[in-house]
Design a protein around this nucleic acid. Structure first.
Length: 571
DNA sequence: GCCGTTTTCGGCCCGACTGTTTTCAGTCG
């Protein structure tokens, strides 16, 4: 599995080229390839073997050649040359907000700064402010950013770990003797950052399956036991595989899925019954293996209801399962539509018709078209005139006898003072108004909270999108009193979004739970910018399930008429 | 470097904001 390795090499090439002052378009080509590879669920090596690398969008002659080189040798000539020019540790500096490629180059050339540590020392010594266009303020900001960066939780973001786990499982599924292979571990529980990429395998010969895992995964072997194998992948991530026989399939899956805290509770419950849950086997008091061909039979054997993976954190789910009152978690099939999607009118790449067709294929009744508003110039945001023009096209589409309804909507920008970027009369003409923050992230906590709360108080807004602005593993949530926002949403009867973008998952499961407890309706939307993004709602659903949400908590489980009724009743 | 075609070159998201200057480079979305 070398997808992430190739992605990392191209990511680093792009960054080093940018620092060296290469053409931004060239840089972008490498960065684009890196992002594509990182979220690819097909295996690059298999694509390469079939000669299909060029079929990946953004892969041309040069990147194909380098990809083959990386798959073969782990690196490529260009990368090695760039690494001679700059030490790799210099890339740490780019993680600092406010520090871009030019600044990194100035720091390197002017002060010899080539790592976070070196920058910290230089800033403390007051040397950074001596550089041109740098001042005391910038120096202070750098020191603060370094501190925040160090405090950031570690782990593999689910946006990377999940595709990788699925790809590994798919490869294992094709191995001889493997009956079942699934992505397990933290990604199956929909953790945001996972320590490790985990696969669970059921096979007649678990030993053979683990050997197959070691071959398929590649990298450095960390463990090659009887029930578990682990490797350090060539991209630096850890991957593990649990394997067991079909009669133990339930125990294998449960062990591989975790969490550690949940497993500790199950082991204790097993002990209370005279059983023992060791490794991937459940043993009776005589030390004989108890058959549990699926997870349900394992949980039943312990006298409890089966616990959905997303809840396995020992946060009350064990007690609930023992009493048999676990919530009936929402499923993808409960959704009747998506309420956040972009088209070619702003920064999306699908037409109204293409987006509608993608939604129809998911079995939806409706899709809200919510392109950006005018303030977001980079995204070619809509003026009132263009919004109106789009509305007429949507009307025409809906009148054309299609079985999916497009809702007229917008993703209106929330200005720094909390006012909205479109006049009331524009918003009043719409079925669905999403409000969100895309600029001025550096406001104080109080200013940001007032801003967000004020936006929700507009009678035309239905939902606030990606409320905290975080990007998992790369951007902290902006300073915001989420509790105050939830309270305001509850008061105003407005909804909050779980944005399904794998890098966002915003609201987080924790905040979504709080919102639901406060009586706030949740919208699980994709923020799709391409027809192929709509199925990524599975990430939002995973987050909603982790929050313990049921279909009743989520607004877009309502059929069209009821949703429109809700929308109208807000005004 | 990729892509698409008005098909082998020219275009590729571009304007606001910030901190530093004193006219603007760099970052960000």
């Amino acid at each position: 599995m070398k997808n992430l390795q190739a992605a990392r090499v191209f990511e680093n090439i792009a960054a080093l080229m940018e620092i060296s002052g290469e053409s931004p378009f060239k840089v972008n080509a490498y960065r684009n390839a890196a992002n594509t590879f990182a979220s690819l669920t097909d295996d690059l090596e298999q694509l390469a073997a079939r000669g299909e690398l060029r079929s990946i969008p953004g892969v041309g002659e040069a990147i194909e050649k380098k990809t083959l080189e990386i798959l073969e040798t782990g690196t490529c000539g260009l990368y090695e040359r760039l690494k001679q020019q700059f030490p790799l540790t210099i890339l740490e500096l780019l993680d600092l907000p406010g520090v871009g490629a030019r600044t990194v180059r100035a720091l390197y050339e002017g002060l010899g700064v080539d790592s976070l540590e070196a920058l910290e020392n230089a800033a403390r010594a007051g040397r950074v402010q001596q550089l041109p266009r740098m001042g005391a303020k910038a120096e202070q900001r750098i020191l603060e950013s370094i501190e925040r960066l160090r405090a950031r939780p570690s782990g593999i973001p689910i946006a990377r770990a999940l595709p990788l786990a699925v790809a590994l499982a798919t490869r294992m599924q094709g191995s001889p003797g493997v009956l079942q292979a699934v992505a397990a571990g933290g990604v199956r529980r929909f953790g945001e950052l996972v320590p490790c990429v985990t696969v669970a395998v059921v096979a007649e010969d678990p030993q053979e399956a683990l050997q197959a895992f070691l071959r398929e995964a590649g990298g450095t072997v960390l463990e090659a036991g009887e029930e578990r194998a682990a490797v350090r992948l060539s991209g630096g991530e850890e991957a593990e595989c649990f394997a067991g026989r079909p009669e133990n399939a339930g125990a294998v899956l449960i062990r591989a899925t975790g969490s550690q805290a949940h497993l500790r509770r199950l082991e204790a419950l097993a002990a209370e019954r005279g059983y023992s849950f060791e490794g991937v086997t459940l043993l009776n008091p005589r030390g004989e293996s108890l058959s549990c061909p699926d997870e349900e039979s394992f949980y039943f054997a312990l006298g409890m209801s089966p616990v959905p993976p997303e809840l396995r954190e020992d946060r009350g789910e064990v007690e609930a399962a023992l009493k048999g009152d676990l919530p009936a978690l929402i499923q993808s099939s409960d959704l009747k539509g998506d309420l956040h999607a972009h088209t070619v009118f702003s920064d999306g790449s699908g037409t109204l018709e293409q987006m509608a067709e993608a939604a129809r294929r998911l079995g939806y009744e409706y899709l809200a078209i919510t392109d950006h508003s005018q303030a977001l110039t980079v995204a070619r945001g809509l003026t009132p005139e263009r919004l109106n023009e789009q509305g007429q096209l949507i009307d025409a589409f809906n009148a054309s006898g299609t079985d999916i309804r497009l809702l007229k909507g917008v993703e209106v920008d929330i200005r720094p003072d909390g006012s909205l970027d479109l006049p009331d009369e524009s918003l009043a003409a719409l079925d669905w108004v999403v409000a969100s923050i895309h600029s001025h992230f550096a406001l104080s906590r109080q200013e940001m909270t007032e801003r967000a709360v004020r936006a929700l108080s507009s009678p035309f807004v239905h939902v606030q999108a990606h409320p905290t602005g975080r990007l998992i593993g790369s951007r902290d949530p902006h300073a915001l009193d989420v509790d105050a926002l939830i309270e305001a949403a509850a008061r105003a009867g407005k909804a909050l979004e779980i944005n399904s973008y794998p890098e966002r998952l915003d609201l987080s499961a924790e905040n979504a739970r709080k919102a639901a407890d406060a009586g706030v309706k949740i919208v699980v939307s994709t923020d799709s910018h391409h027809p192929a993004h709509l199925p990524k709602v599975s990430y939002g659903i995973g987050t909603a399930r982790r929050a313990g949400l049921t279909a009743g908590d989520v607004l877009n489980t309502l059929p069209l008429d009821a949703l429109l009724e809700w929308s109208r009743s807000r005004r």
